[in-house]
């Protein structure tokens, strides 16, 4: 039987190969394949939720063993932190006002506050050779491809795949990721490349006479148009100049807790007032805007 059908088998296999290659090219080059992914995700997402259950049960179990003293201590700590942040925010508001006035005087474009949505990590294992995470907000919450993702400390990465209820975030440490940054101290522009190592990014293509030092903070420069400007990305830990090389070799540590964060923030770039706000308003979840914070 196998001998009779072997040629049609081969033909069928060849067709599948062509189909796969076509699909891969479409998925790599464009965003059209995301419809297929979204449909298949309806099967996969429940499995992913089930796979996180053992860990969730373990966490629930752990709660039983948390002492009330510990909680009280933590509560106090958070309280003092809250007061401190509050005080900082006061100053920030004054600066913001001042900045807006100055910009107005200069006739420059107004900076627009970004809108933020909290997302939880879905702790499932993905391809161990890439740096990606899965979060529990997707198309239904208005997430979109290319959307920047932060943790409370700094830039985490960007969404590269959206499914109905989940999205995949490519982290800034993924070897395929590059992020335009600027040095906080003097505004020098550079690009931060992922290294595949969760606590390193590499700053490439800076000439040896560039003014960059250890402990310099790198902010997102907003130049690629994808990330909003001014969010902390990484801190420089080593600058090496090899006379034989055309560029400096610079290592930096991401400010965000790339491999430990369990909650992340999805950011929608602020839209200038003259343009109507986008339709993709999230339907659920805690939506914080800077404007709400101000009140």
């Amino acid at each position: 039987m196998a001998r009779e059908t072997s040629s049609t088998d081969l033909l069928r296999f060849a067709l599948l190969v062509c189909l796969s290659v076509a699909l891969m090219i479409v998925d790599f080059r464009s965003q059209y394949a995301h419809h297929i992914r979204s449909t298949l995700a309806l099967v996969v997402t429940p499995l992913q939720v089930v796979a996180t259950l053992p860990q969730e049960i373990a966490e629930r179990f752990n709660i039983w063993f948390i002492s009330s003293e510990g909680l009280r201590g933590e509560h106090e700590e958070l309280k003092t932190e809250y007061v401190k942040l509050r005080a900082k925010l006061q100053k920030l508001k004054a600066l913001e006002r001042e900045n807006a006035n100055l910009r107005h005087l200069l006739d420059a474009a107004e900076t627009v506050p970004d809108r933020v949505l909290m997302a939880e990590l879905i702790e499932v294992s993905l391809d161990p050779y890439t740096h990606k995470i899965l979060v529990d907000k997707g198309l239904n919450d208005g997430a979109h491809i290319g959307q920047p993702v932060f943790d409370p400390r700094g830039v985490m990465g960007q969404i590269t795949q959206v499914m109905p209820f989940t999205s995949a975030v490519t982290l800034i440490t993924d070897p395929s990721h590059a992020l335009p940054v600027k040095v906080q101290r003097n505004g020098i522009r550079a690009v931060a490349f992922g290294t595949g190592n969760a606590d390193r990014v590499r700053i490439a293509y800076l000439s040896p006479n560039t003014d960059i030092r250890v402990d310099d903070v790198l902010l997102s420069s907003g130049l690629g148009g994808r990330f909003p400007a001014g969010y902390p990305v990484a801190r420089v830990i080593s600058v090496e100049s090899d006379p034989g090389e055309a560029f400096l070799s610079i290592d930096a540590v991401p400010v965000a807790e790339i491999d430990r964060a369990s909650q992340v923030l999805l950011v929608w770039r602020g839209v200038p007032k003259t343009i109507a706000p986008k339709q993709d308003v999230p339907r659920q979840g805690a939506v914080l805007t800077e404007r709400e914070n101000r009140q």
Partner: peptide, 26 residues
């Protein structure tokens, strides 16, 4: 489905498993 669970390129593991299926059947 593996591609979607692993968030890898769509068609990557599909191609791999099609090959496995072909060889094993053969």
């Amino acid at each position: 489905l593996v591609d979607v669970t692993q968030t890898s390129l769509l068609g990557l593991n599909a191609l791999g498993l099609a090959l496995v299926g072909y060889i094993t059947n053969r």
